[in-house]
Each structure stands twice: as structure tokens, then as C-alpha cells.
Design a protein around this nucleic acid. Sequence first.
DNA 1: AATGAATGAGTTTTCATTCAT
DNA 2: AATGAATGAAAACTCATTCAT
Lengths: 207, 207, 207, 207
Amino acid sequence: MFSKFLNLDQEKQDRIINAAIKEFAQKGYERASTNEIVKEAGISKGLLFHYFGNKKQLFLFLFDYCYEIIAEQFYQKINLDEKDFFTRIRQAVMIKMELLTIYPDLFKFIEEAYMEDSAEVKIEIDKRVKEWNDANFGKAYEGIDFSKFRDDMDIKKVLKIITYTFEKLSEEELLKAKLSPTHHVDYEKVFLEAEDYFEIFTKCFYK
Amino acid sequence: MFSKFLNLDQEKQDRIINAAIKEFAQKGYERASTNEIVKEAGISKGLLFHYFGNKKQLFLFLFDYCYEIIAEQFYQKINLDEKDFFTRIRQAVMIKMELLTIYPDLFKFIEEAYMEDSAEVKIEIDKRVKEWNDANFGKAYEGIDFSKFRDDMDIKKVLKIITYTFEKLSEEELLKAKLSPTHHVDYEKVFLEAEDYFEIFTKCFYK
Amino acid sequence: MFSKFLNLDQEKQDRIINAAIKEFAQKGYERASTNEIVKEAGISKGLLFHYFGNKKQLFLFLFDYCYEIIAEQFYQKINLDEKDFFTRIRQAVMIKMELLTIYPDLFKFIEEAYMEDSAEVKIEIDKRVKEWNDANFGKAYEGIDFSKFRDDMDIKKVLKIITYTFEKLSEEELLKAKLSPTHHVDYEKVFLEAEDYFEIFTKCFYK
Amino acid sequence: MFSKFLNLDQEKQDRIINAAIKEFAQKGYERASTNEIVKEAGISKGLLFHYFGNKKQLFLFLFDYCYEIIAEQFYQKINLDEKDFFTRIRQAVMIKMELLTIYPDLFKFIEEAYMEDSAEVKIEIDKRVKEWNDANFGKAYEGIDFSKFRDDMDIKKVLKIITYTFEKLSEEELLKAKLSPTHHVDYEKVFLEAEDYFEIFTKCFYK
DNA sequence: AATGAATGAGTTTTCATTCAT
DNA sequence: AATGAATGAAAACTCATTCAT
């Protein structure tokens, strides 16, 4: 599919990818300009289309690219020997924060992509997100000692409640950051707040 | 502000509003075409701008319009005499579903508006959402008997967990619907699933 | 022609005239908006066209109106008993400056009108200017004692040289004023400079 | 800046330049339509903006282009060895007339540009005119034998009187031409009239 | 492979003028 | 006389995509 592009020398690939991610992250799919991308990447107009066919395919390629990098890094850093659920989740939250500071553009891009509602692109993104979630949900919980959980509740639903809560919390923090003048997330505060929720969940869901 | 528009006969107002909501809901702010809106509404190009000044003001007008209708209907239908939290929430979920089937376009539009990331419009929408939330969060929980909740947990965080869970559940159901061939939400299934969560929450959070 | 308009009570006429002059003076013929004019004048859209037919006729009406007021004032103030040419010219320059400070809008409008190159309007304006000049050239020089001038030169050409010089000088000063930050003409400096030219002309053209 | 445009083959450049000059000369900046220009030039709408960015830049490019051509031709034709002021001026007038018949459109465009009062463009044009005048005023009078002039008058003001007179004369002739049915300047008559003025000036300003 | 000139349908917005009331 | 809603052609400008070189 993108084999022509992937055969380029790494430096050129990076130039193009970074230029494109930057533009999409800043302006969203619709407003992003392929003109700006080629200018920033220092390549010709025709070449971009030679490699990616059209804007949509470029966008989806980048989405997969970003997702893969982040996922790979994530599973490399996480310690799957840790059996306690909450310790594992705590780890995951910290790693996510770490990656956020290392790859802010990739996260920004992914975040924008999630919210993209250009009909053309949304369905494709949603499909990919679903696939990724299905594939990785199990992985993230690999080796967890679920015997610590109460027996009188559907454990799948319990996990969902926990996951939903942390997802919504981080969405809210990102929104707050966007509306604040500095645009910065106060990670320490977030982490402290998260601890409170861990405590509640432990009380509720552990035996 | 929009007094010229609001003095029109209801039928014409509706034609314009429906055409605009449809277009924005389908394509998002940026891609929506004022050309399409006037064509669908059967009015001239100039008239739309005579009433609304520009595309952005039209969009924000529609947002307020949709929000007001839905909120008004919601608070008309909900029974604020019901003191039990979960019974109240159960009511709210049912009313929301009912409204979703009566006004699918309004919800679709609101949903898209939330996710809009055209910088021009996003900030304005976020502002409005924050105001609405601040104003209505208290209202929805008016008269609730919070003494039934456990005393060893921060009740605000508990309420957040519950709210987040139901929000995420409905987001997921809407996404599933979009990806399904029929585009329909299976309300009965959703309701049954919700019951399971109510049970878990009651066990966890009530004394 | 404009009898409908001229039968209005003076106050309403003035409101309309002032609003229109202001708009045209500020933006020129093409960019001036009839919308702004009616808003400023506090009348309806239809009425303006009821009185003046179209934008062009309104513009030409205003041109005549301004010209008449200024000319009338000018010939009222000038002392036609003064027989010496240069004293008379000196008077004329001073009166013009005085009127410029009393009726800045009218002058600004006239000035803009002269420079108007909307083809539609330019020819009409040029025609009127020519007519006015022909009619008034004689009048301005009424009673002048031309016997003081040298006999070996065509006096008509001599007068033209003098007139051209002062016209160009004031054009240049207006341009300078426009390019300066304050937009103000330094009348005193202009007057002193004019004196130098009077001296040269007296030396050259008087016996 | 306009390097993309200047790399085109001459024929295409000319087509575009001529179409644009024609449209601007006829209608002035504001009323000129880029649509008409591309139609006349036989190029696509996008291309014009690819080359010139926007209407204003196109206009200013044309102004510089016209000015340069005319100035270059002028200084190529004028004989700077001629030391007598009036002979030199006579030469200049003739060359200007000659150029006016060779490049009527360029002159027309420049003339309209001078008078342009679209605020957007006027300031830029005025700036350029001032620069050109400062740079070329000295050049035109290079090598002139000013010792022939009377010593009892400020020579700078004398030169201004002479320049103003000829400028106004040609303005008047152009206006007459515009109002005449044929639109043609009667150069012979103009030249004869100019001779009369030369005579007056020689009598007045030479020793 | 690589270029970048060229396209043209598309966008939002403006505005003089009309006309039913 | 007076209103102002309604029109729709026209404006400047954009941009993903193509294609000859």
C-alpha cells in the first residue's frame, strides 16, 4: 500500500511524517493543507500524492503510525509481572504521562483524530480504534490477579467502570488545559486525584 | 440579535433550522456548506446572511436552540420529587433515550458540536457547555437523599464515577449504532445493561 | 427630479444627506454601502431608493449639493471690490482654508468625488466640474485690474500658470497630510510658502 | 516574490499582464474583476492567485512593471548632453507624448493608479510614487546649466512652477480627450500650446 | 522518481435593488 | 409614503488533485 513511501530513506520519511503530523495536529483534518505539508517537508506537491494517493489515506496512514509507536513503547515499558490490578493501572497512568511528554505531537494528533468528524474519515478512525481496543484490552490486563476482586459482581463491568472513569478524567483534564491560558496539564494534581479514585475503587471492588 | 429571524412565521423558521441542523450534523462545521443549507431550506443565499450575519453565528444560534429545547423537555419530564438517587438516574436515562428518538437530529448536532475542533467555533461551544453544566448539574440532583450513600467516600467523586460510566456507555452504544448496518440503537439491551450497572453501584455506594 | 426628497422637512433631509456624505467621503463611491447610509440616517432601505432611484443618482445629487453650498459661501465671503489680482487670490486662499475647517466633510466628499474612477460616475462628475469651472472662472476674476500685468504675455496663459501652481501646491499638501501620522495640514506653513510664490509671480507678471 | 510568474514564457506573461492592465485601467482597483482578468488572459482562476497571491499584490506588481518600462524607455531616449533647461524640457514633453502613443494602456493604468482611492492600495502607491520621484527628479535635471536662470528667485520654486504647469496642462488635455467623442489627444495642438508657455517662462525666469 | 504549474468547482460573504404589504 | 424581507449575481480566494515533463 505505502511500500513506495516505506522504501525511502529514514530521514526523508521522518521529514514528511513530522510535517504532516504537525499540520494535522494543529488544524484538524479538514483545515490542514497539503500545501503546508509539502512546504514544511521540503518535497514537491506531486510526490506526496505519489506516495499516499490522497489526503485521506495520508491521514489514516499517520494515525496507524502514531498508534503503533505509542503502543509499542507502552508495552515495552509496562511491567506485566505486576499482578495487582491497581498497581498495574497506576503504572499505566504514569507511563502514559511519560509518553505524553516525550511524544506530545503524536498524542495531539491522535487526540484530534479521535474527535475528527469529517464524515469521510471518522468512520475509518472509529473502526481502527475499536480494533485496537479489542486487541489490546486483554493484553493490558494480562497476568492480573483477578482473585482479589469481589465475587458478587460481573468483573468485566467492574473493569469497564474503572476504565471509563480514568478515561473521562483525562478527557476532562485535557479540556481544562485547552481552556486555560497556559494550555498545560497539571500532572501532579491529576495524579493525586487519581489516587483518591484508586482508593474508592479498592474499597468497593476488592474483597 | 436574531430578532429578525425569530419574527418569521414558524414554518419558515423550521425549514431553515432543520436544513441547517441537518447539514451541520452530517458534515461538521467546516465542511458544512451554506449553499446546501439555503438550497434545502428553499431560501435565497442572501437571506441566510441577512438573518444570521455569518456561518459561525448561525452555528452558535443552532447550538443554543438545540440545547434549550432538549433541556426544557428534559426538566419538564423528570420527576424531582423522587428522592432516591438511582431511581432518579434511571428516570434520566429513560427520558434521554425517549428524547433521542424524538429529536435524533438535535442530539446528533449537539454531539457533533461538542466534538467540533474548528478553532473558530470550539472555544465558543466549550464556553457554553461549561455554563450549561454549571447551571444544571445542581438541578439534576435537586432533592436527592444523599444520606443513603456510604459516609467513608467523597460523595462528589462517587457521583462522578456513576455519571462517567453512563456517559461512556451511551457513547459506546452510539458508536456501535453508527458502525452497524441499521444505525439503530437497541434501547432495550442498553436499558438491561444499565440495570446491571445500577446494581453494582448500589452495592458499592449505598450504606 | 429629486422633488420628493426636497419636500421633506429639513431635519430629515439633513439626516439623510449627512449620513450619505459621511459614508461616501469615508469609503468612496464603490465601497460605500447604502445599507450603512440608511442605518445612520434612520430610514428604511426602500425609502432611499424611493427618493433617489439608485446609488449613482444619490451620489451625483450630493455632489451638486456640496458644490453649491461651498460656492455660495465662497462668493458671499469674497470681496469683489478688491481690484489687485494677488490680493484677491490671497483672499481666496484664506477663505478656502476657512471653509475647509467649517465643512470638512463636504470638502472631503468633493475631493473623493474628483478622484472617483468608477467609470459609471467619473464622466458625470468631470462634466459637472467643467461646467462649474467655466461658469465661475470669470466670476472669480470679476473686477480685477488686469492693467497691472505685463503687456507682452498672453494674460490667459499667465493666469493659468498661477492657478495651476496653487492647485498643485494644495494637492501636494493634502497628499502630505494623508501620508503624515496626524493627517493634519499645517496651514501656516502653506500660507508662508504661498507668499513666496506670490512674490515670484508679482516679479514676473506685473509691469 | 513574483519569481514563479517571471519564469513563465514571455507570451503567457504578456497575455496576463495585458489582460490585467486593461481591466484595472478601465475599472479602477475596486471594480476590476479578477474573473474578467483570467477570462481575458485565458488562464484558470487558481493560476492568477498562484502567481500573485491576491488582487492587491497583482495591482502593485503591475504598477511597478508599468513604471519601470516607461522610465527605462524615457531615460534611454532623452539626451542628457543638452544643457539648456527649456530644450531639455521640450525634449521630455515630446518623448512623453511618443511613449503615450506607444504604450497608451500603461499610461492609462498608471494614471488610474495615481487616482486610486481604495484605502488598501492608495498608501502603497503613494509610497512608490514618492520613492520614484525622489530618485528621478535629480536625474531629469542632470547637467542642466542653471546659471541661465535669474539670481533673484528661489530656483527650486521656479522649477516647481514650470513642472506644475506642464503637468496640469497634460491632465487637462487628457480630460478633454476623455470627454471628446474620439477620445484622442490632439498632440500637435498641445505642442503648439506648450511652446507659448515655454516662451513665457523663458521671458520670466532666464536672465 | 520527482516536479510544480495548472485546474476549476467550491467556499463564504456582500450589496444594490425590488416589491408586496 | 414607508417598510424591510427577499433576491441572486458577483466578488475574492482556496485547495486537493492531476499530469506533462
